[in-house]
Amino acid sequence: MTTNDFLPAAAPVARLIQALHKLPGVGAKTAQRLTYYLVRMPEEEARALAEAIIAVKEQIILCSLCQNLTEQDPCPICTDPTRDRTTICVLEEPLDVLAIERTRCYAGLYHVLHGVISPMNGIGAEELKIRELLMRLNGGTVQELVLATNPNLEGEATAMYIHRLVSPLVPKITRLARGLPVGGDLEYADLITLTRAFQGRQAL
């Protein structure tokens, strides 16, 4: 979609529509609605939004250890002396770190891959932060690696690939348990979920 597609709109408006349309999950209509909302927004709010976007681009960097988004390098989690430095949890995206931190059940370190192996989309292992993970593991202090990629085909493929690469370096490699979700109905469970739930059943 080009600026010409929004010719009836003034040039700055068309440019903003085009910019918003590039965001994930934002279609042409949503981009138009957001743009006209922003046009009507008080100037100080619009300026604050623009400054927030620029601040994110200027101040946010990748932690040289865990590859998570951070303002300081190393990030607060990597420098926290109370965290368990012998365990690393491998995740696909920075948002996954927030999800696990919310549980308050994990006190180890993280490693963010920034994606997942997706051969059909041309994304291989070299596009991910796997080399950085291997460098961290070469130190020999890590006792457990938790592979917490998503439980779908591409997440499983990535977990299998990393497992093969790091098995000589880490004594214990684990995968997050897969099974029935809280609030779900057994009758709607698919074959793989139900099979994994049975395989992972625990004594009461």
Partner: peptide, 24 residues
């Protein structure tokens, strides 16, 4: 696109027994 991954796996682990069947 997937040929690159196909070749990478075949080159890194040429024998079937080299690849673990499932993550721990």
């Amino acid at each position: 696109r997937s040929t690159a991954f196909l070749r990478a796996i075949a080159q890194q682990w040429p024998k079937a027994e080299d690849v673990p069947s499932r993550t721990a």
